[in-house]
Nucleic acid binder design. Structure first.
Lengths: 162, 162
DNA sequence: CGCATCAGGTTGAGAGTTCAACAAAGCGGT
DNA sequence: ACCGCTTTGTTGAACTCTCAACCTGATGCG
């Protein structure tokens, strides 16, 4: 009946610390962006990805794939970003089903204004506190864990853009 | 004007891998729990914390602090868990403002039924994929990052329960 | 061509979270 | 005892995310 391989004490300790850190980190970054730029973290990420894309535009499904987000979620998010005037929707020239999301100049400015605060928060939370070797190890650990998770969550290309 | 210390290429790579892993991990665990136990991850955590508490009961604010959650969020969550019959609210005997959240037997059973699948998912995602030394390093890294974040996010005691 | 099937995207309802406002009870000084 | 301030917890509205249903256009096949 119970052939579950439970966690050892040490593993539990690591897991609790890790998952607590994770929640606190996301909370901190989200609150910083919300406070300084009135932008949820996930929306910020959409603007970032768009800003790096050719013509600052991407198909909806590409955008969803790159951010590991569902189509539905992205559709709602882009609708909201569009009503703020930061993103525009255009018809896809090669596939009449498709939509292109395009970052507007206004959207780019919002992103440019939000980035310094966000990067500083990330640096203070992570890179100023870890040794260079710890940072490298964190990268290796993250890549290993990521490789083991459902590939549907994040397309291979999701690590090409920054 | 721009004295922001931007991330190096290598740091960006680590950060993107890390944050992508993080999202995919939470998604995976959340979907597993939702599918197998119809339980959001945050609600599962509430049941876990309660199950370890004396008398399986805690003050609302203690519970919120231990899970790094806002009072409001917890209040809504407990209301939902109560309507499912998994948690009960009782008056606090020492402070008439307070509420106690108590895990019911039914709630304990739900938790017991959900735990094996969840632990297995965690083990497969993390502990089966990392070397023992990587696990230790992940623990150290997490603790270091956590210490740097807003202490309001998680009380000191948040790492005493499991 | 005609039809079934599939892929891209949107929509609306329901669930969870956040935020600000609020009520009730404790605390502290006078 | 009284008054103000703090703490505890709840509530309702606004917002985000998920899920299922749906529409449209592409694709495959007889």
């Amino acid at each position: 009946m119970d052939d579950t391989r439970w966690l050892t004490e040490a593993e539990q300790e690591v897991w609790r610390t890790f998952i607590t850190m994770l929640g606190a980190l996301v909370d901190t970054l989200d609150k910083q962006l919300q406070r300084d730029s009135a932008l949820p973290y996930t929306y910020y990420e959409i603007l970032v990805v768009l800003s790096h894309a050719p013509d600052r535009s991407l198909r909806m499904s590409e955008l969803a794939g790159l951010r590991g987000s569902s189509r539905s979620r992205l559709s709602h998010a882009v609708a909201r970003l569009e009503s703020a005037g930061w993103v525009e929707r255009r018809e896809c020239p090669t596939d009449k089903r498709g939509s292109l999301a395009v970052l507007t100049d206004k959207g780019f400015e919002v992103l440019a204004a939000a980035a310094p605060g966000h990067v500083t928060a990330v640096r203070e939370a992570i890179f100023d506190r870890l040794s260079p070797e710890q940072v490298r190890e964190l990268g290796r650990i993250s890549a290993t864990v990521l490789d083991g998770l459902d590939p549907g969550q994040c397309l291979p290309g999701s690590r090409e853009l920054g």
